[in-house]
Design a binder for these strands. Structure first.
Lengths: 332, 332
DNA sequence: ATGAAAGCGCTAACAT
DNA sequence: ATGTTAGCGCTTTCAT
């Protein structure tokens, strides 16, 4: 199927391709009569601008590559939505790539996006976090922005929520409402977010005059199963567990499942709080008190930052730290 | 930032661009020594094939345009995942476009994807369902596949679940387990899926010797609020409501909320069943008995069908109807 | 106000 | 086995 080109229009009207190009791009120096004739012919012939040719010529695709570990995982759809909305508003499209958290896959997808000549890259919850990884990205000479997860080398553009502050506000709330011994089921993460949440936990406890106790801080996988297993184990010891703060909602889901299964009541016997506010959190059997990350907003800001970077490659790296929000529900 | 081109490699090695092209595309008729030299130079210079140039030349972008109403809505992330996985496996990338269910937006995004010269289009839960819409798509001469929602003119490629069969298996189950008067909170949808579910409901009731009663069949919006409001109203009449079958999980969420709020027990007082099996369904306060659509699979099949169509534009339109599955949980 | 020429990076077709 | 030519559809530059 052969599509109409500018040349076709030019022939139809009896002008040069250049004139057609000017008209179709709203450039000056075309007589009003000619302009109208070109416009009419374009419509009549069903002209669809070939953005591939344009991309080739202009050396820009108006496309952003999005690298994400698992686009279907609760937390990400909103982020992606924010990204897509904001990108479109600014005339960019999104090329979507899942990596399933696999480093090698991520490397390949980045390569692919590079070959497709995207104008920039958003790395959402990327595994490309080592100093070498960031170095590699920089060497590519393509604008990129990290989102959600911060790389070790923080001298890059990134958008994230304030993990310290989020953990801190949750501990403040828990202590204020009566908890003093707060178990922390944190994730062990390659990134710094687990660490920052831990810091927020620790410092805020100390602020309230509660000594930090390494014994009640665990590091688990970022899975429901892990939360479930660790809660089962802890509770089976018959320990006095009053409050569990989970590093993420996914862990909390498992934890609550274990608690209810063992016949305890939430929040009467045990209070459970966590971090992220995935879509599920509000619908759970016992709705979850959690720190809400501004997911959609993170997406929007990532795009805005990336576009800034595209327009001005020399600028100093910039970080945008969005404030999370405390969402109190029934689990506490 | 100027990237390495084939011409750069050609100069470096001292051969023609054509030879470089042959090597880099694994074409025959190149001596092994030359081949190796080219390969080495490509690596040394960090050559990244320019897929834009390639697309222009070959008239194919190896990109699929995905039109979807709301990529963040519960049901779709899995579908998208299936699409992305399968596309990548076959060397295609996905250009993601949300329409928010807005017809005009959809029209514009289709236009955009056309301009970006995608090789094909997947319309997931599209609003482009009228005969004219399909006609328009056909006139474009681009391969396209409908997913989830079927257009009025069914002589196109599409992938969907068997709505009749899904509703039927649910009614079978409900009747078998003691329900005879089954309220149906169906959606009123522009598409045919609500109609097919209604048919499955009706025919299966009749099969069991239960007369179809128009009085207990409602048409609601596809929202939690709508389910909530209608359930409240129905229950406040003090009617004898034993079982409610909802046309989709979203409605069921609202219905269950209303029921619990009014002090009834699920399933002891009222049984609730529905359709779709969105991710939430299993985590709800009372986990939901529902008809599980094979979401990921729908995504995969859409891509496979589209690729077939791309390779063979003349083929007869083909429809793939996937069987849903009955998922029994606590709400019944 | 209009147009001719050149070239973006690549490959199909056709030499040598 | 290797190279030359031409052109995909567009825009920048430089005439006219």
């Amino acid at each position: 199927m052969k599509l109409t080109t500018m040349s076709d229009i030019a022939k139809e009207v009896g002008v040069s391709v250049m004139t057609v190009s000017k008209v179709l791009n709203n450039k000056p120096n075309v007589g009003p009569v000619t302009r109208q004739k070109v416009l009419d012919a374009a419509k009549k012939l069903g002209y669809k601008p070939n953005m591939i040719a344009k991309s080739m010529r202009l050396n820009q695709t108006k496309t952003i590559g999005l690298i994400i570990s698992d686009s279907s995982f609760s937390f990400f759809p909103s982020v992606i939505k924010g990204i897509e909305d904001c990108a479109m508003r600014n005339g960019y499209s999104i090329l979507l790539c899942n990596t399933n958290g696999d480093y090698q896959a991520e490397k390949e997808k980045i390569e692919l996006l590079l070959n497709k000549r995207v104008d920039g890259l958003i790395l959402a919850a990327s595994t490309f976090v080592s100093v070498e990884d960031t170095e590699y990205l920089k060497s590519l000479g393509i604008p990129f922005v990290y989102a959600i997860r911060i790389p070790v080398d923080e001298s890059v553009d990134y958008v994230a929520n304030d993990n310290y502050s989020g953990a801190s506000m949750m501990i403040d709330y828990l202590v204020r409402t009566g908890s003093r011994k707060i178990y922390f089921f944190n994730m062990h993460s390659a990134s710094t977010s687990a660490l920052k949440r831990l810091n927020g936990y620790r410092k805020t406890l100390e602020k309230h005059g509660i000594a930090y106790d390494d014994e009640i801080v665990y590091k688990l996988d970022h899975t429901i199963e892990s939360g479930y297993a660790h809660a089962k184990k802890l509770l089976s010891y018959g320990k006095d567990v009053q409050t569990i703060f989970c590093g993420c909602d996914v862990i909390a889901i498992g934890v609550m499942e274990a608690i209810l299964e063992m016949g305890f009541k939430i929040p009467d016997d045990i209070r459970v709080a966590s971090y992220d506010d995935i879509e599920l959190a509000q619908y759970l059997q016992v709705s979850l008190t959690t720190v809400s990350q501004p997911k959609y907003e993170i997406g929007v800001k990532s795009v805005e930052l990336l576009i800034e970077r595209i327009h001005n490659p020399q600028k100093e790296p910039q970080s945008i730290i969005l404030e999370p929000e405390l969402t109190i529900r029934k689990s506490t």
